[in-house]
Nucleic acid binder design. Sequence first.
DNA 1: TAGATTGTTAATCGATTAACAATC
DNA 2: TAGATTGTTAATCGATTAACAATC
Lengths: 238, 238
Amino acid sequence: MTALNKAPQKNIDDKSASPRRRRIPSAAVNRLPVYLQILTDLQLTETSQVSSDQLAALANVNAAKVRKDLSYLGTYGTRGVGYEVAFLIYQIKRELGLLSQWKTIVVGAGNLGSAITVNGGFTSRGFPVVAIFDVDPRKVGTRVGDLSVRNLDEMKDFVRANGVHIGVLAVPSTAAQSVADDLIAAGIGSLLNFAPVVLTTPKGVTVRNVDLGVELQILGYHEQLRGQGVTQPSRVTV
Amino acid sequence: MTALNKAPQKNIDDKSASPRRRRIPSAAVNRLPVYLQILTDLQLTETSQVSSDQLAALANVNAAKVRKDLSYLGTYGTRGVGYEVAFLIYQIKRELGLLSQWKTIVVGAGNLGSAITVNGGFTSRGFPVVAIFDVDPRKVGTRVGDLSVRNLDEMKDFVRANGVHIGVLAVPSTAAQSVADDLIAAGIGSLLNFAPVVLTTPKGVTVRNVDLGVELQILGYHEQLRGQGVTQPSRVTV
DNA sequence: TAGATTGTTAATCGATTAACAATC
DNA sequence: TAGATTGTTAATCGATTAACAATC
């Protein structure tokens, strides 16, 4: 049956046909950025094709899991061959929304906030840090990378005026909830919180906590088990 | 039946009787430090008793989950009353191995490594940072908090001589694997890795990755869904 | 055709949570 | 005793993975 372009096209096997995709399981969403990282590294070594087995080895996961995770994006592999690295990178970026730029602000211009702003690589990954704020008048006006530290008073107006999407909290625990409240009131939808507190936020706001103390404590638990001669599960990764 | 101390004690309802405990599910291990944090905060407000409902509300989780998680420690609650805050803190600390001190070194004295060493609160949480290393001769000898930056060459000997337990990798991606190899060769069992790479490590070594890029990308995905009018799952937390 | 690898099914495993008897 | 809350069971849900037909 050769192509007859008379009849209305139904695109039955057109991979770009309207997706109407179901929600990707959150465990898979958490792994997609890891695959993206590995694929980007592979691209630097001029690798153009990769199999689920290879990718699995590099990501320290099961190959079936890799194939299942990638299948949520669409059917982009070639049986007997593998996946085209560049195409897969594009598809993961599309799925994760990394073809857009997400305006980000950092709150707190201490050591951590400054380190993140300057070295976090946020801007280069599509998350331009458009401002950094601090409450300390001695810090306001000083430079952090390309940015001049702004007064916390201006934060809400700035977020509204600039349509900021993401807020990074690098403030002391005592201040975190109040800053979060202000950011949410100003319309921000996602927070990356470095303060060791559980933020109270309305439904619909996404919060990711990065608590270094928690991470260390989990390692401490594994060290204790090791000390007791308990064989460890091979690896635990966030 | 009153106590008769003649017969050999069987300690049938002695809570401190030999535990011989099964492994705690890893999902529960990940939450215990969060409960610990909340309980420690509660203690500062002079709260001495807490119910699973209250704790659940503060941790943003289901109350049945709290009770189940705590039941892995032992049966330390009182029906009709709740849990004693101080006692629960002690039990979580015991279970997580936080009654010991775990010697920690930081590798990389850049912005992030310095921020962690000075402000991470590691030492105060039972993870004393006993040394910081860098490969850059201009950094070696400079001060970071109480510590003087040591040359990376000394790292392996230092780890062996001091019985260091945990290594924090705050080095560029390109250096992370080689530093990890050295640390593991020197006998370290647990790594906290800030470099955006998947480390290859022998079985038995525990690795936790904290990749800020990955965290942001997950937030980007949620921002994209929000932009498409998809109602978000209430919260996503590491 | 022979060999390789995907995409998907189905079995299994682990995590979550409603429900409620036990008990303070 | 009445009210409150734990500890645990069992149902349910989601994640993982072995296996294999499909197919390059």
